[in-house]
Amino acid sequence: MTWNIGGKSVQSRLLLGTARYPSPQIMRQSIASSGSEIITVSLRRESVGQHNGNRFWDYIKASNAHILPNTAGCHSVKEVITTAHMARDLFDTNWIKVEVIGHDDTLQPDVFGLVEATKILIEDGFEVFPYTTEDLVVAQRLVDLGCRIIMPWGSPIGTGKGLRYIESLKSMRHRLPDVNLIVDAGIGKPSHACQAMELGFDGVLLNTAVATAVDPETMATAFGKAVEAGRQAYQAGLMQSSDRAIPSTPLVGKPFWHENPL
């Protein structure tokens, strides 16, 4: 079923990063295996005489995926704004995944800088994909600024710990029913991605769990299926959990029962 995200229509609800793969070929195969139609990229300095960026860009263009540039590594609003403009000029897209790093060890987003940068970028015509925490007030502020997409973390970037803030994520889903919610960061295994989708999240963005797997291509396939399974489960309606055991087999007509035992 088609998913409308940031003015585009896609089939897959898995967004995949392009970093840390053993080789560009494995990256390209993994993107294809995952079924992802949205991939994240960055902008980095390129030394004179080196043309690694050219080769990477050629690989990315060949994937035919939608490009979601990020502002990874930016620590200030000024850096984010400049990087976003450079990305728009180079990649010909108004999409930007806004990251403002607030702490070098935890890579926790600076939500104050995020809100400030998002306001400027939305006024400038960008479709902002804000990487944020599980904080509902921040998410609501971003929506008020015009964000149609919110990307809270599951747990810190690269940790693979899964949905550490699950109650807050549930609350965010409940409070922001009309916003595209994407869990970004901290997803370590397909079951984490499936869990996020079962909560009713609209998509999942991940990178390291696929790129650093022993077999990235197969792991990409697994994540694609997990995201799809979680989405189907959410749409099908999950059963209510219970604190009491409830037999699933009917008691009526059970054998070896006698009204008057001998």
């Binding site: 990063g17 392009t18 970093a19 840390r20 793969y21 990256m27 994240t40 990229v41 960055s42 902008l43 980095r44 300095r45 390129e46 043309h51 690694n52 960026g53 050219n54 990477f56 860009w57 990315i60 540039p69 990020n70 990874a72 990087t83 403009h85 450079m86 000029d89 180079l90 990649f91 970037i157 990178n207 390291t208």
Partner: peptide, 25 residues
């Protein structure tokens, strides 16, 4: 912007950043 490359001049002491597409998460 690319459209401004032709008529944007560089001055003494300028700080120029040249960035290329790279992998990212």
């Amino acid at each position: 912007l690319r459209r401004d490359y032709e008529h944007t001049r560089i001055a003494q002491g300028d700080d120029i950043e040249i960035l290329a597409p790279m992998s990212g998460g």
